[in-house]
Measured scan of single mutants.
Amino acid sequence: MGFKLLSKLLVYLTASIMAIASPLAFSVDSSGEYPTVSEIPVGEVRLYQIADGVWSHIATQSFDGAVYPSNGLIVRDGDELLLIDTAWGAKNTAALLAEIEKQIGLPVTRAVSTHFHDDRVGGVDVLRAAGVATYASPSTRRLAEVEGNEIPTHSLEGLSSSGDAVRFGPVELFYPGAAHSTDNLIVYVPSASVLYGGCAIYELSRTSAGNVADADLAEWPTSIERIQQHYPEAQFVIPGHGLPGGLDLLKHTTNVVKAHTNRSVVE
């Protein structure tokens, strides 16, 4: 069995187990497998329904001669939608809004960016022009300005110390501490036991640490421990890039980060 097929099978099995364990909360999309990078042309966006009122959005972007996937989250909030992270750029984010209108038909009224990198804030200006209120932590807003990236308009308070959590509509926002970046936030959907790890969490097929220019490698494993301790009931975990899975993604990420750190020390 090929690795790609095995990865998709694991996603399907995880979703099936969740649907059985929580039949009222989960209505997993039966329309197909989780979209992969090879299936999404740059400039297009796919939506994948995880649970009743919960979707991931998947886009792709060219970077350094390669094409990478990027995940975000959409959560229903009454007759409105909360968006977590842009679709990595203005063109993708405009396509995301169009796809949401086509498939869901509810307005996106608020959006949260989970850290300051372009795959999370690139497209904020498109959201703002569409009347979406954009939010991020003060740290993310400051770092985005320093980096020359787009800056969300509103500040999220109460997320300055490791372990801080605040309720934001249908989700809980959690600051686990520094990891992929010093400002990275985690998003949890309690009604569906869905954990969105953003770039602080890796997919299972990833074996290298990737972009760690703004990471705190020493603190990252401790931050992941905080996530595990705060959300032990999480059933569906979405990484910032690639295929979702279960809580095993947290341990896998820790292993990859520690291996990278150990290699760096040896070198």
Rank of each mutant, 00 (worst) to 15 (best):
I50P: 04
V11Q: 08
G53M: 08
H252E: 02
S16D: 08
S191C: 04
K102W: 09
Y196P: 03
G78H: 11
G245A: 05
Q229W: 10
A66V: 11
Q103D: 15
T140W: 02
G32W: 10
E267T: 06
R206C: 10
Q103R: 14
H252A: 04
S27L: 13
T86H: 00
G245N: 02
N255G: 14
I201G: 03
L47E: 02
K258R: 13
Y68R: 03
V67G: 13
D216A: 08
V237F: 04
S56W: 15
A133M: 13
T36N: 14
Y196L: 05
D77K: 03
V67R: 15
P170D: 03
G89P: 03
G169I: 04
L5R: 15
L247S: 14
V108R: 01
Y135P: 00
Y135C: 05
V126W: 08
G246V: 03
V112K: 03
P190N: 06
G105L: 06
I224H: 03
D125P: 05
V28S: 11
D125M: 08
R167D: 13
V166F: 06
P107L: 07
G210A: 06
R120I: 00
I58V: 15
L217H: 05
V112F: 05
L185F: 05
P221S: 10
Q61S: 12
E145I: 09
S160N: 13
R141Q: 12
T207V: 13
P152W: 01
M18G: 13
V42E: 14
V132P: 00
R120D: 04
Y12T: 12
A21S: 13
G78D: 14
T222H: 14
A165Y: 14
K4C: 07
E147L: 11
D79W: 08
F236V: 12
R76L: 12
H115C: 00
V11Y: 08
N92H: 03
L5P: 13
Y135D: 02
E44P: 06
R110Y: 14
F26R: 14
K91Q: 15
Y231P: 03
G53S: 10
Q229F: 12
P170R: 05
P239C: 00
A15D: 10
E157A: 12
T182N: 12
Y175V: 02
Y34I: 08
A66W: 09
Q228V: 13
I100P: 00
D125L: 06
W88S: 02
F3I: 15
T261N: 15
T140H: 05
N149H: 10
D216P: 04
Q228F: 08
A15G: 09
P41M: 10
L143V: 04
S27K: 11
D216Y: 07
T222D: 13
A136F: 02
H180Y: 07
Y188I: 01
L247K: 14
N262H: 10
A90N: 09
R110D: 02
R142T: 13
M18F: 15
A15W: 07
A213W: 07
P35A: 08
S160V: 12
P138Y: 10
L97C: 00
L82I: 11
S208Y: 10
L243T: 15
S160G: 13
G78V: 09
G177Q: 03
G158R: 07
E101P: 06
L83C: 01
T93D: 00
L185N: 06
V124L: 09
L243Q: 15
P190I: 06
V112P: 04
L217S: 05
S137I: 06
G32Y: 13
A51G: 09
M18L: 12
V54A: 05
L217N: 04
R120M: 01
G43F: 05
S30W: 08
S70E: 04
G65N: 13
P190T: 08
K91H: 11
V11M: 07
A215S: 13
N71K: 04
V75A: 07
H57T: 00
I186H: 03
P244L: 06
D52L: 10
L106R: 09
E267Q: 11
L73S: 01
D119E: 03
T109G: 10
P41W: 06
E219A: 12
V42F: 08
V266K: 12
N211E: 11
I100Q: 02
L6Y: 14
V212N: 12
D214R: 07
P152H: 04
D214F: 07
T254Y: 15
V189P: 00
A94T: 14
S193C: 05
V237S: 02
I20P: 07
K251F: 09
S31P: 11
A98Q: 13
S62T: 07
W55P: 03
T134V: 05
N262G: 12
G89L: 02
R263T: 14
R128W: 07
N71M: 06
R206F: 11
E101V: 08
T109V: 13
I50M: 09
A178G: 12
Q49K: 14
T153E: 15
L10W: 08
E219D: 08
S193V: 07
G245Y: 03
I227F: 06
G177K: 02
Q235I: 12
D125E: 13
F236M: 10
I17R: 12
A136E: 03
Q103M: 13
A136H: 04
G198R: 04
E80P: 02
A165D: 07
G131H: 07
H180L: 05
L47I: 13
I100C: 00
T134G: 01
G240V: 04
I50L: 09
L204F: 07
A51R: 08
I50N: 03
R110G: 07
N149C: 06
S22L: 09
A130Q: 14
T222Y: 13
A136V: 04
V54G: 02
G65F: 06
Y34A: 08
F3T: 10
G122D: 13
H154C: 05
S70Y: 04
I238F: 06
H154P: 04
K91C: 06
P239G: 02
G65Y: 05
T60S: 14
V126I: 09
E233K: 14
S139H: 13
Y48L: 14
I104W: 00
A136R: 04
G89N: 04
V132W: 01
P23H: 11
H230Q: 12
D85C: 00
T14R: 09
V256W: 04
N262C: 05
A136K: 04
G148Q: 08
I227W: 04
D29H: 10
C199H: 02
V132T: 06
E150T: 04
D125R: 08
D164P: 05
A95I: 10
P23W: 12
Q235K: 10
Q235R: 11
G177R: 02
D79G: 11
Y196E: 01
T60R: 08
L83S: 00
G242A: 04
K102S: 13
S264A: 12
L83Q: 00
V256Y: 02
C199T: 04
I100R: 00
P35C: 06
L10C: 14
D118Y: 07
D183W: 02
A218D: 13
D125K: 09
A133L: 14
R226E: 04
P170N: 15
A130C: 04
E172F: 03
S113N: 06
G148M: 08
T14S: 10
F26A: 12
Y175N: 06
A178T: 08
L185R: 02
A218V: 13
T134M: 05
L9Q: 15
G177C: 04
E172D: 07
A218F: 12
A192H: 07
E203C: 07
G197W: 03
L243K: 15
I17W: 12
G131T: 06
R46Q: 09
Y34S: 08
L81I: 12
P244V: 06
A179S: 05
D64S: 13
S137L: 14
K4T: 11
R206N: 15
A19L: 15
V121N: 03
P138E: 10
L73V: 05
L82R: 01
V256G: 01
D77I: 01
R120P: 02
S27E: 09
D85Y: 01
R206G: 14
H117I: 00
Y188Q: 01
R128G: 12
L249N: 03
Y202V: 15
I40G: 06
A178V: 08
R120N: 00
E99W: 06
V257E: 03
L81N: 02
F116V: 04
S223I: 04
S155E: 14
A209K: 09
E157V: 12
I58C: 04
L249A: 01
L185S: 04
V132K: 04
D64E: 09
P232L: 09
R110H: 11
V266W: 12
E225N: 08
F63A: 09
L81V: 11
T109A: 10
A129I: 07
T253W: 00
I40P: 12
G198L: 04
H260N: 10
V108K: 00
I186W: 04
S191Y: 13
S181D: 01
V132M: 04
H230R: 15
L82D: 01
P35Q: 08
